[in-house]
């Protein structure tokens, strides 16, 4: 029993260590999103190398499945002579990073891409890291949510619509409330971010269970301190419910934060 416990402990430690060596930006991504891999090769044969090349392959968790063909990245080159396009960028001691978009790198459609794996190697293949795999792509499907902003990516000059789908509410107040307005609070790019302006009483409209409010940050009637760069905004829906005595009470939903994208 002690041996089994020790074995499980070692295995768990090994997995935890493997996961800790690889990180992604953004943390989750679809096959059509650009993603940056950062990997720490400390403790592997690639430790101490002055340059590293990626060897990347699609659908690492499946083999011989026609729905998910296995393909090498188009930057790989040959094992004995990696291409320059596979060269990774230094990101600190024993740390390397590489940015790619899966559909472009593998020449496959999103439907053909389930996950991927990779390893780091020297240009000639004389040294290599262990395989890092599999890392799954987020599915390309629409998932209804309680809060949703339209469009999904917004800049400070854009028309932004925030939505509340009451049919998806899990708390009593939100599911019973009659929305009347939205409050939007803008945050700057400081660390920590500071609230620099609030837009109150943005009118709402509804279409079935979905309540919406629309605003344009740079054309809203808020006064921002000079030189302010907006990083995100938070919004909440305000409304009323009838309590057990039949009296009207004011309620608000929780706040949801939306980052601004740099759109041009």
């Amino acid at each position: 029993m002690k041996k089994i416990f020790l074995l499980l402990l070692i295995t768990a430690f090994a997995f935890a260590r493997t996961n800790a060596q690889v990180s992604f930006g953004p943390p989750t991504f679809t096959a059509i999103d650009p993603v940056t891999i950062t990997v720490d090769v400390t403790g592997t044969p690639m430790a101490g190398e002055t340059e590293a090349y990626i060897w990347i392959f699609s659908n690492a968790s499946v083999s011989g499945n026609a729905a998910y063909p296995n393909k090498d990245g188009n930057v790989n080159g040959s094992w004995g002579n990696s291409s320059d396009a596979a060269k990774m960028t230094a990101a600190g001691t024993n740390k390397w990073k590489f940015t790619f978009t899966a559909t472009e790198l593998f020449g496959q459609t999103p439907a053909q891409l389930k996950d991927f794996g990779f390893l780091l190697k020297s240009k000639t293949g004389s040294k290599q890291s262990p395989d890092y795999k599999p890392y799954a792509f987020e599915p390309l499907i629409f998932t209804p949510t309680l809060f949703r902003n339209f469009p999904a990516k917004v800049g400070v000059e854009d028309v932004i619509t925030v939505n509340l789908d009451k049919s998806l509410a899990t708390d009593v107040n939100t599911s019973r409330m009659t929305p009347a307005s939205v409050t939007v609070t803008f945050y700057n790019d400081g660390n920590p971010a500071v609230a620099v302006g609030t837009l109150n009483n943005v009118p709402v409209r509804n279409n079935g269970s979905i309540w919406s409010a629309t605003f344009i940050p740079t054309q809203a009637t808020i006064v921002l301190p000079g030189g302010t760069k907006l990083k995100s905004f938070k919004y909440k829906f305000n409304g009323t419910i009838l309590d057990t005595d039949g009296k009207t009470s004011n309620v608000s939903t929780s706040e949801t934060e939306v980052p601004f994208s740099d759109l041009k």
């Binding site: 059509i32 999103p110 390309l140 499907i141 629409f142 949703r148 339209f150 469009p151 999904a152 990516k153 028309v159 619509t161 629309t214």
Partner: peptide
């Protein structure tokens, strides 16, 4: 207004008439 990333995700919310 059209969300260019919505169609590929089969979202029912692709455009908004502003």
């Amino acid at each position: 207004q059209k969300d260019e990333g919505a169609e590929i995700k089969n979202s029912p919310f692709v455009t908004t008439d502003l």
